[in-house]
Design a protein around this nucleic acid. Structure first.
Length: 220
DNA sequence: CGTAATACG
């Protein structure tokens, strides 16, 4: 199975830049995107109706902000697009898709850099999701997305200069420690332990390619 | 500076 994760920074922008052309040659079973910046009705029809895939999205109440979407070849047994609402309001940051053999989460974790309030929100978001995930401890969970946190020094440029900057603060990194303690594996670092490599293609099968392509900063 | 609405990353 191949799962792709991509922070697109505007689904309508990448649509203009031939997203559907890229998708046509993409062999992924599941494609997850973050920062769609569009309500469900704002997604181009071509994007919602890509051949052979089921489409799901979660959008923020605030127009043109945040949002995640998933395309899946396999139809999930269950989809939830609002699990963060109770505690955190609706910023369209989490999509849960349940399949027979595993549960997929596509998550756009908040950026905490704008203010103390947003850092607090980010920490609460992590806490809420980590707690929510505990119910699946006897199941297979794949959580991809934009974590907005670098776990270790190797995971960002200039770690020393960024120790007090949101994205690499000790208390943020601790949340990723918690995820690892509860059994999650950083799949990129599992296969690629090279410095100056922040993302790209991971192939977990016999053809284990490493690549410097992508360079998706802070994306785990 | 890019995206999409005038804020956010």
């Amino acid at each position: 199975m191949k799962i792709v994760s991509w922070n697109v920074n505007g689904i309508r922008a990448i649509y203009k830049k031939d997203f559907t052309v890229w998708f046509k040659d993409e062999t992924a079973d599941i494609v997850c995107v973050q920062e769609t910046k569009a309500g469900e009705t704002q997604f181009p029809k071509d994007i919602k109706e890509i051949g052979g895939y089921n489409f799901y999205c979660s959008s923020a109440e605030k127009k043109g902000y945040s949002g995640v979407a998933v395309w899946s070849k396999i139809k999930p047994d269950f989809v939830n697009a609002g699990i963060e609402n109770k505690v955190l309001g609706n910023e369209g940051r989490i999509l849960r898709l349940d399949f027979k053999d595993f549960i997929l989460f596509n998550v756009y974790f908040p950026n905490g850099g704008a203010s103390r309030e947003r850092l607090k929100y980010k920490m609460e978001f992590y806490d809420y999701l980590i707690k929510y995930l505990k119910q699946f401890k006897n199941k297979t969970v794949v959580m991809c997305g934009d974590y907005n946190t670098a776990h270790f020094s190797i995971d960002l440029a200039r770690p020393k200069e960024n120790e007090k900057v949101s994205g690499f603060m000790p208390e943020e990194r601790e949340k990723l420690d918690n995820l690892v303690s509860s059994g999650f594996i950083d799949t990129f670092r599992y296969f690629n332990k090279e410095p100056d490599n922040y993302g790209g293609i991971i192939n977990c099968c016999e053809d284990q390619r490493d690549t410097k392509a992508g360079r998706i900063r802070k994306q785990v």
